[in-house]
Design a protein around this nucleic acid. Structure first.
Length: 497
RNA sequence: GGUCGGUUCGUCUAGGGGUCUAGGACACCGCCCUUUCACGGCGGCGACACGGGUUCAAAUCCCGUACCGACUACCA
């Protein structure tokens, strides 16, 4: 039987880091065994689901490169089937109508309310004390026929326990006494999560469910539903959670965009790098190799490498340099700096285009120059954004000067104001403007002036790139070319800043 | 409150009774290279939550405590 897994997000926000990692693990698992990776949008909560969120999730998945192998399933389209299943269970006596009026809960403190209620009911409350649980069929039918609203609850057996072998957490058991007669169908006729998931997973012939650990206890309820429906439950594997710094829950509300996939895309992350980073959060290949492309990840992925403890996604909202996890940033830099240049170029192009720095010659007459330059400057870059910010001077005459660079490398040595234009003069007659020739000229010039090579070079760097850091100056001269080098060495704009 | 789960450097992790004076990566610090540096090279700092057992031997097994998390909704 082919393995079929699904990623089933609910469209109540963007694709966040936890869901993205769940999608990744499902994808890796499916591909590893030659199975299918499916996508289902769980939009049964009409009040909270939005189309915009669905789009955002799809966008995130697309960016990461996880295309579903079959058509996307929208859970809300299956509501009729879910209702039918609930009715069937009711018919078979495996569920019952609950005529208790719906309780209005203040939306805000639901968790607190639950705890409070549980505290009050301590030791008294039984999960089976619903007065409608054993209502006769006749009376139940009668009241329903009279138009009395009701919810349908699953009739959980009095004694026994559910158990299953979790792919990550091992044997998991739960006593029936701990499981309430869960609501299958709301009094307004809307199917509830646990019913919907089970029905859809049966219908989609899902064989393995890989999802967040927050569903671990739900699984027992779902197994009860599978059994009532006469279906064999699939295999389950639960993933540890990804937490915020300090070990608190990562929340869309509190942590905002920092957890959204689109943020990473928009901040110049390479999907390959982010995927790689995500894979290492809660999973380990058990080797010391950390840089792995998708294919390698697929090859070595196994449930056995998944942790049971939660991982922290580190970031510091108040520190621009640490706006997201250090390791994610490093991973991205590693990819930017070491991936085959040919694979990187399309991303550089897209970045330059969006910054209006792209010129079509880069793919034509200046193709070689473009490749060489991108290759040269990427050595110190972290994200794709750096090509248009720090790398701006290589693609445009309109670039900014870093104040600190000017102070430190230019104004501190007033002689440079005449020397640098003089150096430009030395460049003028050069026929071949390449590394070695430039070196000869610059060195000779430096000796003439009795100056330090570093002073000349760094001054030139400030003038030619606006920055205090970057590749070797000889390489910069060469890549910028004679004309631009001369022009910028003579320019006085930086001196007047 | 109850049930269940988890706990190795700041963070991601290796390890599953002796090979652990606990390994790697990121971050941090230092040194080197150098015309600069956010590159590169070398090195350093730094952890088995705590308390009891079991054992010749425990990071590894058992129990308890603490802390963290999930679930406990006519949310998903």
């Amino acid at each position: 039987m082919t393995i079929r897994v699904r990623f089933a997000p609910s469209p109540t926000g963007y694709l966040h880091i936890g869901s993205a990692r769940t999608a990744l693990f499902n994808y890796l698992y499916a591909k590893h065994v030659g199975g299918k990776f499916l996508l289902r949008i769980e939009d049964t909560d009409i009040a909270r689901s939005t189309d915009e969120s669905t789009r955002s999730i799809l966008e995130g998945l697309e960016w990461l490169g996880f295309a579903p192998d079959e058509e996307i399933v929208f859970q809300s389209n299956n509501a009729d089937k879910h209702r039918a299943a609930a009715l069937k269970l009711l018919e078979e006596g495996k569920a019952y109508r609950d005529f208790t009026p719906k309780e209005d809960r203040g939306d805000k403190n639901i968790k607190e309310a639950i705890v409070e209620k549980a505290r009050q009911n301590q030791g008294v409350k039984s999960m089976r004390d619903n007065p409608f649980r054993d209502l006769s069929k006749e009376e139940s039918d009668h009241r329903a026929a009279n138009g009395e609203p009701f919810a349908i609850r699953l009739k959980v057996p009095e004694f026994g326990k559910t158990s299953f072998e979790d792919g990550v957490y091992g044997l998991t058991e739960r006593d029936y006494a701990e499981i309430e007669d869960l609501v299958l169908l709301r009094s307004d006729g809307h199917p509830l999560y646990n019913l919907a998931v089970v029905c859809d997973d049966i219908e989609m012939e899902i064989t393995d469910i890989i999802r967040g650990q927050d569903h671990l206890t739900n699984t027992h309820k779902q197994i009860l539903i599978y059994q009532a429906l006469g279906a064999t439950p699939p295999r389950f594997a639960h993933l540890p959670l990804i937490l915020a710094p300090g070990g608190k829950k990562l929340s869309k509300r509190i942590h905002g965009e920092i957890v959204s996939m689109t943020t990473y895309r928009d901040h110049g992350f390479l999907a390959a790098a982010f995927r790689n980073f995500l894979a290492l959060l809660g999973w380990s290949p058990k080797t010391e190799q950390e840089i792995m492309n998708l294919e390698e990840l697929v090859n070595v992925f196994s449930l056995e490498g998944i942790h049971r403890n939660n991982a922290i996604f580190n970031f510091d909202a108040n520190n621009p340099k640490r706006w997201t996890d250090d390791k994610a940033l490093w991973m991205n830099a590693e990819y930017v700096r070491t991936m085959p240049i040919g694979e990187l170029l399309p991303f550089v192009k897209a970045e330059l285009k969006s910054a209006k720095l792209w010129r079509d010659e880069y793919e034509d007459d200046d193709k070689e120059w473009f490749e060489k330059t991108a290759d040269l400057i990427r050595q110190r870059f972290f994200t794709l954004k750096d090509f248009s910010s720090q790398g701006r001077a290589y693609f445009s005459e309109d670039f900014d000067f870093d104040q600190a660079a000017i102070e430190k490398n230019l104004k501190k040595f007033p002689d440079l104001q005449t020397w640098l234009p003089e150096l430009a003069e030395k460049f003028e007659p050069m026929e071949s403007f390449t590394h070695d020739e430039i070196e000869t000229v610059v060195k000779q010039f430096t000796e003439e002036k009795g100056a330090k090579l570093g002073v000349i070079m760094n001054g030139a760097r400030a003038l030619l790139t606006g920055l205090a850091v970057g590749p070797s100056m000889l390489a910069i001269f060469e890549t910028l070319g004679k004309e631009k080098s001369i022009l910028r060495l003579k320019s006085q704009v930086a001196w007047n800043l």
